[in-house]
Amino acid sequence: MTTASPTIRSPRALAWHRRGTAFVDFCREFAQHRAGMVGLVFLVIVALVAIFAPVIAPASMLDVTKLVDVQRFAPPSWEHPLGTDHQGREIWVRMVWGARVSLLVGLAATAMSMIIGTLVGIAAGHFTGFFGGLMMRIIDFFLVLPSLILAIVLSSVLSRGVWTIIIAIGLTSWAGTARVVRAQTLSVESRDYIERSRALGAGHWHIIMKHLLPGVLPLVLANTTLTVGSAIISESTLAFLGLGDTTLQSWGSILKNAMDVSAATSGYWWYVLVPGIAIVLVVLSFTLMGRAVENITNPTLRSR
């Protein structure tokens, strides 16, 4: 009678197996956070609405030439669920299309900010001497600069557009992430296995990719969900100031149009309240998700 030999896995296969197991455990723990799940479900609904915007609200509904007989500044009713704007366009239609730009800017700008902040933070924490000090001085320089003012300057200098706002927000909001990543990098650097890797001849690239980057990724992930909300607020602020693309719908541009017609002081409360509540709810949802991820990935918070 022959016995089957045990399956021998390669180190790479074992590493992927551990990662898969860790991901399953993370999803299981995240599902137990009610606040985080509420935020996730709401964001999934908003994302689906943004993706299927052409189906839910065809672009022709925004054509002002076809809205001659529609009442302007119509209050919310069965005929106009969220009211109409100063050109007779349905507010809910503008909100559906505006979700596309707001989420795109929030996610893309956050991705750019996280990549820059992670690379600079790891470099500042790993390298010593002149280069490490230079990286830290660059981080301090961007920390003391008002990010919103710098984003306004970049948006006014560059051509107006969605990608201009993404670049402006991404290039001005990475310093906080870099400082947090640097602190985590210094903590990982002090562990024994880093010293053993150096003693065995590991170079900077190996240490950064194999040890430091996996060590800071949970913190970066938690910080990402919190930064998306700030990016959406920044996009709304820039659009509110008239620095966005006027040909595209966004929640910030809706607030800008409401300010131009003095909606708040003229009694057209729905024109201001609807996009304002939407921005608050989306930012709150990302914050709830961020807190849940932080509780899972941070051993100190998880043990409480």
Rank of each mutant, 00 (worst) to 15 (best):
L107M: 13
V188F: 03
M114T: 03
V38G: 11
S303Y: 05
N257D: 09
Y271S: 14
L213P: 06
Q184C: 08
A202W: 01
W174T: 15
A183G: 15
Q184W: 01
F42H: 07
L67G: 08
I115R: 01
S173K: 11
R302C: 13
T225H: 05
R160K: 14
V120L: 12
P214E: 02
R28G: 04
E195S: 13
A151H: 13
R94Q: 12
G98E: 07
P275H: 03
T65S: 13
A15W: 04
L212V: 09
L243E: 07
A31C: 02
A123W: 02
M259S: 13
V46R: 00
V272A: 06
M95D: 04
V64Y: 05
L43D: 09
I254D: 05
S285D: 04
W269E: 00
I8K: 10
S60P: 07
K210R: 14
V180L: 13
L241K: 04
A258C: 08
S303K: 10
S102P: 06
F141M: 14
R12Y: 14
A99K: 09
Y268C: 05
S197D: 09
W92S: 15
P54Q: 02
F141A: 13
T172K: 12
R34W: 01
H204A: 15
G161F: 06
F73P: 09
I51L: 12
W270C: 12
F240A: 05
W16F: 14
Q87M: 15
I296R: 04
F42V: 10
G229W: 09
T84D: 02
G244V: 04
Y268R: 01
A202P: 00
D260R: 02
L238P: 06
G276M: 05
G98A: 08
H211T: 12
N257V: 06
K210D: 15
V261Y: 00
